[in-house]
């Protein structure tokens, strides 16, 4: 028979094994980036951010905040943000679709539930894709990237967007008519010109990829 201390120790040991594993499962990009340096960070994270929810899916949600609090390098905070965005997109409500050829000025559109817009300072999306495909990690690029995550069916994909396309998508965070969405961007001459030149292609891509769609 175990002593009382040892009895509690069984549960403590299971916690120490189970929770870090669950956190790391949600941080697959960061795991590829940091390797053996990640588990000590996860242990530290769990000390400061014990799980307070019933679902293990959300156990790593504050990891970016934690990394920022310890002044971690920007590629680490970017990767944590990307990992968590992927986790949310994975189980978000399914996206609805629309036919871009039937678009009217008054058509109401909205970003679909799995879509996440990310402003990143590093090319962590390339690192993550390579790591999950079993490829060598590319050299990290430090620049401003506008990225949209989306899930046309069950697999999550991403696109790197031009500034104007990213601004266009931002206009549809809430249900908005196409005309109103474009109106908000027309005051910026550069954006307006880019829109005029590319709007058709972009809207076809956003429709086909189920990035934009009708409100639920």
């Amino acid at each position: 028979m175990l002593s009382p201390t040892d009895q509690i120790g069984v549960y403590a040991e299971q916690y120490r094994l189970r929770l870090p594993e669950a956190v790391i499962y949600e941080l697959r990009g960061l795991e590829a980036l940091l390797g053996d340096a990640l588990p000590p960070l996860v242990a530290q994270y769990l000390q400061h951010y014990p799980s307070q929810t019933w679902t293990l899916d959300r156990v790593a949600d504050q990891f970016e905040e934690f990394l920022a609090s310890i002044h971690a390098p920007v590629e680490q905070t970017d990767m944590a943000r990307l990992d968590i965005a992927v986790s949310h997109a994975f189980t978000a409500p399914d996206a609805r679709t629309f036919d871009a050829s039937t678009l009217q000025a008054e058509t109401q559109l909205v970003l679909q539930p799995p879509v996440v817009l990310l402003e990143l300072s590093t090319s962590v999306f390339r690192t993550r894709s390579a790591a999950l495909s079993g490829l060598d990690l590319p050299e990290m690029e430090f620049a401003d990237f506008r990225v949209v995550l989306f899930r046309p069916e069950r697999k999550i994909r991403h696109l790197v967007l031009a500034d104007a396309a990213y601004k266009l998508l931002n206009a549809f965070k809430t249900p908005t008519s196409l005309a109103d969405g474009l109106q908000t961007l027309s005051q910026d001459a550069f954006t307006a010109n880019a829109l005029a030149a590319n709007l058709g292609d972009w809207m076809r891509t956003f429709a086909k990829s189920r990035i934009l769609g009708p409100p639920a």
Binding site: A92, D94, R151
Partner: peptide
């Protein structure tokens, strides 16, 4: 149950 108590995506499929 909890593995499928999500809004959509692969688990629900």
């Amino acid at each position: 149950s909890e593995n499928f108590m999500v809004d959509g995506g692969s688990p629900r499929h």
